[in-house]
Design a protein around this nucleic acid. Sequence first.
DNA 1: AGGGTTTTGTTTAATAATTAACAATTAAAT
DNA 2: ATTTAATTGTTAATTATTAAACAAAACCCT
Lengths: 222, 222
Amino acid sequence: MQHKTETYTHPQKNREMIKKNIQRIIQYRMCLLKFQNLGFDRIFSYTLAQEIGVSPEQVRKDFSQFNLRGNKKAGYKIQEILDSINELLHKEDLHKIILAGLGNIGKALVQYKGFINRNMQLVAGFDIDPAKLKKNCRIPVFPPDEMARVIREEKVVIGIIAVPEQVAQEICNQMVEAGIRGILNFAPIMLKTPPDVTVQNISVCNELEALIYMTEKQEETK
Amino acid sequence: MQHKTETYTHPQKNREMIKKNIQRIIQYRMCLLKFQNLGFDRIFSYTLAQEIGVSPEQVRKDFSQFNLRGNKKAGYKIQEILDSINELLHKEDLHKIILAGLGNIGKALVQYKGFINRNMQLVAGFDIDPAKLKKNCRIPVFPPDEMARVIREEKVVIGIIAVPEQVAQEICNQMVEAGIRGILNFAPIMLKTPPDVTVQNISVCNELEALIYMTEKQEETK
DNA sequence: AGGGTTTTGTTTAATAATTAACAATTAAAT
DNA sequence: ATTTAATTGTTAATTATTAAACAAAACCCT
């Protein structure tokens, strides 16, 4: 029997839930911007839901959880919700990010122009290959042994790992040691980190394989 | 009251569940390969679970669902499970993939060497920019109006969308029309597709924003 | 060979997430 | 101003997922 009113939830699980919800919120924002650009200044939960592929109740519940309020009968004021979401995501300040590895993915990220629109900035890159140090002039690129210094000096808390699998864990350890708290990992391994460091994996191969499975499954049952 | 023995589940939801489970299976495979390379030939659900960050029961249940069988007291034979997973994922045959858009992401994908190890192959790229048509000699690159022909001739069912947001939906429509059944989408929009087409979105910006939120949330509650 | 121990696989229970329902509210119309 | 219609926000119910429990199996050691 539970004595407390609030039921206990495992911190790790709880965090997964928050992450999932905030990812939906980020999607809503994408969608809100779209409708704003189309000239609308209000939107209903129903419309938003249909666009994202969830139920209207889900939208209302998500908004409610993050205290994003609408108007009865009149829906949600797009600008108002956008402002609130931006505040929620601390979009008023610039978020510095470092990048380890300037291979194919790293180079693509360096050249990507979409970060600054969303108040994110790659402040430095790191690569073992001396040839990479000058090539990409958009951001300064250092050898890996300077990473800890840069992280500390620039007070960076977010890092991207785009190095080969073999060195990914080592780079991860160095990042965490120097103060990185969130890692976007492109290496095809499960990184080991302390529980207070958040890791998000991206694997194009895995996604493609899952997609292939799904399509073939669909084909079978047709 | 439900009359059928099997309870009804919404097909869309059901598909989400299968996708999630198969993604875990793909992760298990990654991990199994790692342990095989370390010289092990058997593994316990407990070990695998710890490595992936789930419970041992979850591993056993996942394996059970896909009929991946172990040996009581002796755990799972790594090679056996790997073979079964590869069979499950139809790894015996080569999976052809087309790529729309040869910008930063597209170029990175073309240069990526990991596909062939997993029996996937980019068979063609498409870009509106004539300058791109010759540049990347790893795969043939065509203008977009040849896409439908190539999809049909090569019988491709998987496509990657790495074009600018503004044309992503149009490219998607063309792909679906020509026979593509699974799409990996890098454009920051929710693509509209028929229900039997599976879409998987990848957005580096969204993942980073979620990561930033998580780290700041963590900082607050500390 | 046989008991003890360990680990699977499945069933049952607990927890979490989604959907449905509905009361409250408010914009718009008359 | 009053009424009507529509939409939110929250509570309740349902469904789905995850974890626990335990029986069955089989390896290993004596």
